[in-house]
Design a protein around this nucleic acid. Structure first.
Lengths: 203, 203
DNA sequence: CCTGTAATACCCTATAAATGGGAGTTTTTG
DNA sequence: CAAAAACTCCCATTTATAGGGTATTACAGG
């Protein structure tokens, strides 16, 4: 029997999902947590086969947590379960070592299938995400590390001069990055750039 | 027995919640829909006592739908069930006639309690939202209609001159509004203003 | 009837961002 | 290794925004 730990703060959903998984006779839920902190503690005590992980947790992002957890427990399969159908998030978390990605608008059956699939060593993506990944894999907006740093500072309201000081770069370099960012994101000015960045969760 | 219709696109959650409600012996789920369009059709055929309504539906916002539905069926109790714990959303939807607001991190028990409460004619807010409403009811950021119009155009990247043309106002007026918006939102520039507006979903 | 708020408009100065160029050095990677 | 991508820097001009005021009108609420 495959053991599953669920980390999701939507307790309402967890309740139902736990029932479905336990009834499947394929896997059983051996633990539940609703925050990253709780999850860490639980995994220290007992490592399941599969971790069902949400992205929006009260104390942090599942995206970064995925990296952390895969370093600590390389054999643990992480299956993302979230409402986010943004390409940028799916891409990042899959690059961070997740074995699958299921949207919350799927049926719980699909989670069972996902659990089986990732346990067999394969990647599991729900249909919507699969389509999204293929559609965007070529013509995707992908920002470099520096661009992301800059974008974050712009969103936080720093001026070019302040950003230059913070990043120990010339203000001219900052201007160049801004030009490129506007181009890459197809934004006519920084306001739109901020909107796009937040909506597509590029940062 | 209280009849309940659930409109939510997270089918996984709906599955579990339906079970819980049906097992409660207080209410029963007589219909499920995962979009506003489906919900409209379903309600045309059969009006339940309570409508459990999500905010983020694929074809629109539950906030506006609430107004629509309360005009058509004034006796129908609308109980919002969503992951959004933003004051601005809760305030708007309650003003639009909702009878209650429950976050998805609640237990399904709380939904049962909510259903009973709203059927008795009272308002039901889950704890977190109740606190939020009290905390913010005095010192809340509340934008006037004109300010909201303006903010939307700013976020869409229009310059002051373009906004002035669109709103048939002097560019000087637009500048005045912008200054007030920056002040009200406590933003040091427009980038931060856009961030705040999107994060707090003021628009 | 007075007060406050919303909506409208104007002026001036300073700072910041957008536009449109060019050009060099690392780092990554096929 | 050679090419591509990422990272860095500079200049000049134009346009937009920020920050400081002030003022009129209309309307709602105490």
């Amino acid at each position: 029997m495959i053991t599953v730990h669920i980390t999701d703060d939507h307790r309402m959903l967890v309740e139902g999902l736990t029932l479905s998984i336990n009834e499947s006779n394929i896997a059983k839920v051996t633990g539940i947590s609703s925050s990253l902190a709780q999850c860490r503690t639980a995994l220290d005590a007992e490592i399941p086969d599969v971790l069902l992980l949400d992205i929006n947790l009260p104390d942090g992002s599942g995206v970064d947590f995925c990296t952390e957890i895969k370093q600590k427990y390389p054999n643990l399969k992480v299956l993302i379960l979230t409402a986010h159908n943004e390409y940028s998030i799916a891409k990042r978390v899959m690059h961070n070592g997740a074995s699958g990605y299921i949207l919350k608008n799927a049926l719980s059956e699909e989670v069972i299938t996902g659990i089986e699939t990732v346990m067999s060593g394969q990647i599991f993506l729900c249909d919507e995400i699969d389509v999204l990944m293929k559609k965007r894999s070529e013509n995707s907006i992908w920002l470099t590390v520096r661009e992301q740093e800059l974008l974050r500072l712009i969103i936080d309201g720093y001026t070019n001069q302040e950003i230059a000081d913070k990043m120990f770069l010339s203000i001219e370099t900052i201007k160049t990055y801004r030009k490129n960012l506007l181009l890459k994101l197809g934004a006519r000015n920084s306001m739109v750039m901020v909107k796009i960045a937040l909506e597509q969760k590029l940062i």
